[in-house]
Simulated assay, not measured.
Amino acid sequence: MRILIILTYYRPHTSGLTIYAERLARAFARRGHAVTVMTSQYDKSLPLDETVEGVRVVRVPVLFRVSKGVIMPSFGLTANRLVGEHDVIQLHLPQFDAAGVALRGRLLKKPTVITYHCDLRMPPGLLSWAANQAVLFMNELAARFTHRIVTYTQDYAEHSPYLRRYLHKLKVIPPPVELPEVPPQAIQQFRLRTNPQDRRPVIGMAARLATEKGVEVLVEALPKVLQVYPQTQVQFAGTYQNIVGEEAYYARIMPRITRFQESGAWQFLGNLSPEQMACFYPNLDVLVLPSLNSTEAFGLVQIEAMISGTPSIASNLPGVRQPVKIHEMGKVVEIGDSEGLAEALLEILGNRTAYIRDPQPIRQRYLPDRVAEEYEKLFAEIQREICKS
């Protein structure tokens, strides 16, 4: 089967969405499919056409940006060619250009599936508001044209203003999650390098330093934890500098974090490779995901932590709360509640073994090849419907 995957940003850009798309694309390729990813050339140093681990990546030049969105005048011509060359189409939303591709799939009678990752929230400002309205309108058209919409959880779908209008098209498929296998000595070496003074406990956060991630909730909870555990250290894995659209947030939050950095209670690790992430999670006592709004729909990092034996604390957001609820490996706290987060941290740190579960069943549930198989079944189901119509 020839599978075309389309999304605005792809690797090496780092986000939950791009990691999901990369894992699924590689799983399809391993399973014998011809896979093409069509995306933006958001960085001009990236090649327009390359093959990475069996996946062809076609990047469309970007003329200019509107906030985090990109304008690609040649997108339509490239989409025409690639849609014609492939058997099925998978679109990742939010994405401004998805409607036109979904319409092409419908007219050419090719199974077309939207994977919907999260609701869109743009930064303040008239231009951002206009861009947001345009994307929302195009997403609505894409939903009407597509054959199915995939999402991570029923919980998120029923609370999303977008998804709950299309429950009749909905298919719930868990996201693909995997970590490389690393030897125990690599985990030990990572600890010695990132925490040479062996400060404990270690609280982890894996995210971008972005407004919706709720970093300030952890910042406000930390003093209460330090009162009980003076040697606590937060390790923040992910991009934290020069994030497009987050300059004001960075300027606001960094002075509060700096004082913890100076005392050794906070450390930025930057972007980590998959192998480094596989060493990061086992060295944590707990992971936190204090996200603030529906731009977070699940939190793949929670599953990565759990399959590494590390419990999670998540915000009581639709979808985001599901990993903890399903696997009973952590706690859920109210959105933006720093006191609640501090109490949850102290409870887990004081009785961590009560929140540990066998990681193997969790790992099996989210294997990329298993997720790819679910998509294959969905494509086949749609194809049968098209043939009957």
Rank of each mutant, 00 (worst) to 15 (best):
I3Y: 04
I3D: 00
L4R: 04
I5G: 03
Y10Q: 04
R11G: 06
P12T: 12
T18S: 13
R23C: 02
A27C: 14
A27V: 03
F28W: 15
G32Y: 15
V35W: 11
T36K: 15
Q41I: 10
S45Y: 10
L48M: 14
L48K: 13
E50V: 12
E50M: 10
V57E: 11
V58A: 07
S67N: 12
V70D: 03
P73I: 10
F75P: 00
L82Q: 09
L82N: 02
L82S: 04
V83H: 03
V83A: 09
G84W: 12
H86G: 02
I89A: 05
I89T: 03
Q90F: 09
L93K: 02
Q95G: 08
V101W: 02
V101P: 00
L103Q: 14
R106Y: 13
R106K: 15
K110A: 01
P111V: 11
V113E: 00
Y116W: 15
C118V: 09
D119N: 06
R121E: 12
M122G: 03
P124T: 14
G125I: 12
L126F: 14
L127V: 15
A130Q: 13
A131K: 07
A134R: 10
A134N: 10
V135A: 09
M138N: 15
E140S: 13
A143D: 01
R144Y: 13
F145A: 14
F145Q: 06
T146Y: 04
T153W: 08
A157W: 01
E158W: 07
H159G: 04
I173N: 01
P176I: 01
L179F: 10
L179P: 00
P180K: 08
P180A: 07
P180Q: 11
A186P: 00
I187N: 02
I187Y: 05
Q188L: 13
Q189Y: 08
Q189N: 14
L192M: 12
R193D: 09
P196L: 09
Q197A: 12
D198S: 04
R199M: 05
R200G: 03
A207V: 05
A210W: 01
V215Y: 03
V217M: 09
L218V: 03
V219D: 04
E220R: 15
E220M: 08
A221K: 04
T232E: 05
Q233R: 12
V234S: 01
G238R: 02
T239R: 13
Y240D: 04
I243P: 00
I243G: 02
V244L: 11
V244F: 06
G245L: 04
E246A: 10
A248Y: 07
A251G: 07
R252T: 05
M254A: 03
M254F: 07
R256D: 02
T258D: 06
F260E: 02
E262M: 12
S263H: 07
Q267P: 00
S273E: 14
M277S: 06
N283I: 08
L284Y: 08
L289F: 14
N293K: 13
A297N: 03
L300T: 01
Q302N: 11
A305E: 00
I307M: 15
G309M: 08
G309A: 10
P318Q: 10
P318C: 11
V320I: 08
E328S: 10
M329F: 07
V333K: 02
D337M: 06
D337N: 14
L341E: 00
A342P: 01
E343S: 12
G350C: 05
Y355I: 06
R357H: 07
D358Y: 11
Y366I: 04
L367A: 15
V371N: 08
I382M: 05
I386D: 05
I386H: 09
K388G: 05
